[in-house]
């Protein structure tokens, strides 16, 4: 079998690329095309966990149905009761302000 000149093989490759509409890249330069060609992974990633149905979500989705989440109502009412009796959660400290504990220390000391 006779050996074929390198230039002829290159010419054939170029012709092949033009026929099959692929890009001719003899030096294998990285064009970043693979990042555009690859499928997007996000849509399948989001679907991994099965969707959860909760009462709170249903109520939020369909406000027109007039459903009431009794457990949540009860929780809010209990919290309001606690607050009325002065047993609510302490206020959050603002940024830069000393904490409640530090303030108390300063008063006593």
């Amino acid at each position: 079998m006779a050996s074929i000149a390198c230039s002829r093989i290159n010419a054939i490759n170029r012709l092949r690329c033009s026929i099959f509409q692929t890009s001719y890249n003899p030096t294998s330069v990285r064009t970043g095309a693979k990042y555009l060609r690859a499928r997007l992974r996000g849509p399948s990633m989001v679907k991994y966990y099965p969707k959860e149905i909760s009462i709170a979500k249903l109520i939020k989705e369909f406000p027109a149905m007039g459903w009431v989440n009794h457990a949540e109502e009860q929780r809010l009412q209990d919290l309001a009761n606690l607050k009325a009796r002065g047993k609510g959660a302490p206020k959050k400290t603002k940024k830069g302000e000393p904490s409640r504990r530090a303030k108390r220390k300063r008063k006593s000391g």
Binding site: R30, G32, A33, Y35, L40, G42
Partner: peptide
């Protein structure tokens, strides 16, 4: 997962430019 999905297209575009010799 949702943040990956939201930014995927923009990230891909930047990746394409950054890896393009």
């Amino acid at each position: 997962r949702s943040t990956v999905q939201a930014t995927e297209v923009v990230r891909r575009a930047y990746l394409y430019v950054a890896r393009n010799q």
